[in-house]
Amino acid sequence: MRPHVLDDYDDSFAMWSNPEVIRFIGGQPFTREEVWARLLRYVGHWTLLGFGYWVVRDKTSGRFLGEVGFANFRRQIEPPLDGMPEVGWALTPAAHGRGYATEAVRAALRWADTQWPATDTACIIAPDNSASLRVAQKCGYLEWARGSYKGKPTIHLRRAAGPG
């Protein structure tokens, strides 16, 4: 895992424009412009906040598998995330069901536990996204609320600070 660079754009676009990937993340494939804005947001998080998203690549082949990391999107969401860093992940269909998401999220959480030893983290997941809900549960996240974001239902999960 490493922060994004310009050369990640095409791989990121291929993932975010795939209907299987975005089925529970807004439901509409992202345009090239939207993926460009996403890439800039990732880099901006690292520059302004000292944290962000990483690219996940296969250790052996170097193949792009997805993205995982932390953000402060300042979401207008109910209930609010109250300033907790929000973990998120998305992987290419070729990486689905192979344990990569759990491995990547756990790696991100090890990093977070050293950076924010006293800070809880959160995530939001669509209720029908059973695969991501399983990943969150394996990584120590527990449901603490139900709400909505942009008119769609969400499950809000929280992980207590410190090694889990």
Rank of each mutant, 00 (worst) to 15 (best):
P163Q: 15
W36S: 09
G50D: 04
D7G: 13
A101H: 00
T121I: 13
G26S: 03
S61A: 03
A108F: 03
T47A: 11
A131M: 07
R158C: 12
T60G: 11
E143T: 15
V135W: 00
W16D: 01
D8A: 11
G162H: 10
Y149C: 08
R23P: 00
V135G: 02
V68A: 07
V87N: 02
G140K: 06
V43D: 05
K138R: 14
A104S: 06
F30Y: 13
N129Q: 11
R158T: 12
Y53H: 10
A131N: 08
V105A: 09
D58L: 02
P29Q: 12
A37K: 11
G164W: 13
E86K: 01
C139L: 14
P3Q: 11
E103Q: 12
G27P: 01
R159N: 10
W16Q: 09
A122Q: 00
M1G: 12
R2P: 02
G66H: 00
R57E: 12
P93D: 05
R98I: 05
G151L: 05
Q137G: 14
G164T: 10
R74H: 13
T47G: 02
F30P: 02
F51E: 09
A161K: 11
P19T: 04
A122M: 07
C139T: 09
G147N: 07
R63L: 10
A108N: 03
A37V: 04
F13Y: 15
G88R: 13
F64T: 02
P163H: 15
L142W: 11
R38V: 09
V35G: 04
P117L: 09
T102V: 04
Y149V: 05
A126N: 12
E143P: 13
G140F: 13
G50E: 04
R146Q: 15
V56C: 10
P153F: 03
Y149T: 02
D113M: 10
D10K: 10
L157P: 04
N72A: 07
A90Y: 07
R41D: 08
W144E: 15
E103D: 13
W54P: 03
C123N: 06
T60Y: 04
A108Y: 02
E143Q: 15
T31P: 01
R146E: 15
L133Y: 13
